[in-house]
Design a protein around this nucleic acid. Sequence first.
DNA 1: TATTGTTATACTCTATAACTATA
DNA 2: TATAGTTATAGAGTATAACAATA
Lengths: 145, 145
Amino acid sequence: MPDLNHGDDAAAVNSLRSAVMRLGRRLKHQRVDESLSPTEMSVLGTLARCGSATPGELARKEHVQPPSMTRIVALLEAKGLVRLEPHPDDRRQKVVSQTEQAEAMLEESRRKRNAWLAALADGLDEDEWAKLREAAPVLEKLAHM
Amino acid sequence: MPDLNHGDDAAAVNSLRSAVMRLGRRLKHQRVDESLSPTEMSVLGTLARCGSATPGELARKEHVQPPSMTRIVALLEAKGLVRLEPHPDDRRQKVVSQTEQAEAMLEESRRKRNAWLAALADGLDEDEWAKLREAAPVLEKLAHM
DNA sequence: TATTGTTATACTCTATAACTATA
DNA sequence: TATAGTTATAGAGTATAACAATA
């Protein structure tokens, strides 16, 4: 079978599309820190994974335009959650990295998320959770493609 | 084992949260009809599934506030995609239902989505797609909880 | 001349508060 | 008195266009 079964996948994508958009809206309201927007949280998560990045790299990773990332980075810097340093090789660029305060906040966020998770766990059985765990890395891959 | 394994699930939820937010942003740009917002598309999908609903029901299902749904329904009506009728039992309420034009547009959307799907299929193997298909209904359930 | 990042500006979407009509 | 929907207004987040500095 050289080709994938796009017919079945189209139905799955329809379902995924709808669910992702709705879940996205719910997550916006479920934000662990009221003072941080979803994208700001996502940027901190990216920095926690990657160590550091330039504003341009962050814009591409988060799928926002450069001016939006300028604003987001400025807000995070004002909150003391990221640090901006000159790029070693290219004086046009900057290097963004997270502060210790950001690490502490992410740890606190994790605790708050666990409460939300416990509430959700009441409505899903172990089999359903297993399917989500299996799919999570694929969704991440999809988000990066 | 009376309790669920929340430790493992917390990591999965972290991954899910990040992926859903990013995918949501990508879907916003991947919209099949440029003139329709993601929520407008989602409302049409809901009407296609449920037949018809009141503005209040739609607001609850889409997780937006009633005034936002008023605007969304008005925009859809202006585009000829939904029809508003008086509620048979309660003169405060209204009944929103989709027009034939909406059905045609959803059919056209499906074709466009298939092109997007084909592009995505290049980057996922059959096992990864299977995991997404398994998880899609669970994500839908999560979105409704 | 191309690229990185910024500034200025406007738009889209949603929310809150106050109001109207009906139950 | 409570509920469904609307109107008016404000805010958050993002985009586009024009610009500055550097490659």
